[in-house]
Design a protein around this nucleic acid. Sequence first.
RNA 1: GGGCCCGUAGCUCAGUGGCAGAGCAGUGGACUUUUAAUCCAUCGGUCCUCGGUUCGAAUCCGAGCGGGCUCACCA
Length: 524
Amino acid sequence: MRTWITTGRGAMASEDELIEQRLAKRERLLSMSDAYPARVSRTHTAAEAVRAFLDAGEVENQVAVTVVGRVTAQRVMGKAAFLDLRDQGGRIQLHFRRDALDDFEHLDLVDLGDFLEVTGSVFRTRMGEVTVAVASWRVITKALRPLPDKFHGLSDIEARYRQRYLDLIANERSREIAFTRSRVVSAIRRFFLDRDFLEVETPVLQDHAGGAAARPFLTHHNALDRDLYLRISLELHLKRLLVGGFERVFEIGRVFRNEGISYRHNPEFTLLESYEAYADYHDVARMLEELLAYVAQDVLGATELVHGEHTISLAPPFARITYRQALLDHTGIDLDAHRSVESLTQVALERGVRPDEGASWGTVLDALMSEFVEPNLIQPTFIFDYPTELSPLAKRKVDDPAVVERWELFALGYELANAYSELNDPVDQRERMAEQAAKKSGGDEEAEVADEDFLVAIEHGMPPAGGLGIGVDRVVQLMTGERSLREVILFPTMRERQGERPHEHPGDAGDAAEVDAARTDVSE
RNA sequence: GGGCCCGUAGCUCAGUGGCAGAGCAGUGGACUUUUAAUCCAUCGGUCCUCGGUUCGAAUCCGAGCGGGCUCACCA
């Protein structure tokens, strides 16, 4: 009868039985009325109902409410029952009495997880809980699968990520993180809009995945019979908009990098990039200080936050140190004294850092920074003036062409943001893209590709500008105090489970055939 | 990708070579102010998968799958 319900992990008798019982209750509900009405009433949320009762001086039978939500607990005592009803913002207790309800017995058809619409008046129980004395009620959604344990919740981390909806039902902390993330993104957006930045959207599907050093995902457009890459950054299109005359633009968007998955890395993550004409990287640094302080104040109500054993202060100004000085301070290496790969590799080896075969000067520097400097940058710290070799899109320092006007902001030992005085000399840009292209053909999969269309764009003139990139997920991590990136991403990328198939639905066999036919049509 | 740890009922977990267990949820019963309601009874298992050792494997061994932590690369 119900062969179309699968457990998703192969048939398991007892789970099937639970579903079977709930299906039978659904049938009984449907035979009496609708268990899935399209329209429901609601006069108060749970929190509003409590508030209204308090505001009315806690007089019983005075405050009439209609509330809706999910049943999360049932305490049935023969001729009376208490149910907990939860909505997005809170929970309220319901009291059902046999002598007050014709349909009291129909509570047998209600399971944990069902949604109810309930009308009644608010009172306070002997035990002190504000409660709705139910005068009428109905099921507005019958659930077929049981919820996680009402007391222990859902603690299996894999289940929490794969079935985040259960995590959100069971774990208050997961809800908090999701709310905080939303507030962080809203605050960031408001900050830029308030400063007259134009919010734009640029292509995810691109001919060249440029603007960062990372391996892209490849996809295919059927009608054009053409491969496309998923973007790895927002940079090159936003700069085209500077050429087009916009002076302040930003985008908050998902980018995709075809790299390892870990608690610090998800293949798709949210990047914010902004570009401001006639600003330089010092201006951008000051703006970022204001931004982070603003977001922290807005979301947390303070510019200090506790993250594990550390108390982080986001009150401007942040520490500033040059790349060269930071390396000198933490390793004793003066990069100006080791301008050749051979010399630098030698001092790296002396400190136990073994660069990859054929590593370039910049790559060795990067390894030294990652090993000795970055982990120590707990309080927000700007590292200024990067080696040109590592920064093909940033403007050179006038007094030292081996260094560019670029900074990265670190906190808690990892990178939060990255900014340049943007390179707008098309001749220099063309040369540096050519260098990257040479590296790429030399086997460096993360080297940038030359983007001719972009070069043509800036040959029309791009104004001097300061650009910024922020890892939004990491800002959320910072603001929530979470250690794992997967806790701040609602649906983190997971491996495919072995033998897992999409849940089947009625008529699946026929639908599948139609889909196949449709595909054939498209490919012709 | 390397190292370490984990995978037992819908959920949370015991069980480390000898009959597959508990609490919650479910089902039946008692109970008209409970709140992890309580009490009685009861249903529920591919012990992740495959192979091996053994008279006998959830337990020991090997391989695989999935997950967590960690190291390396990346934001």
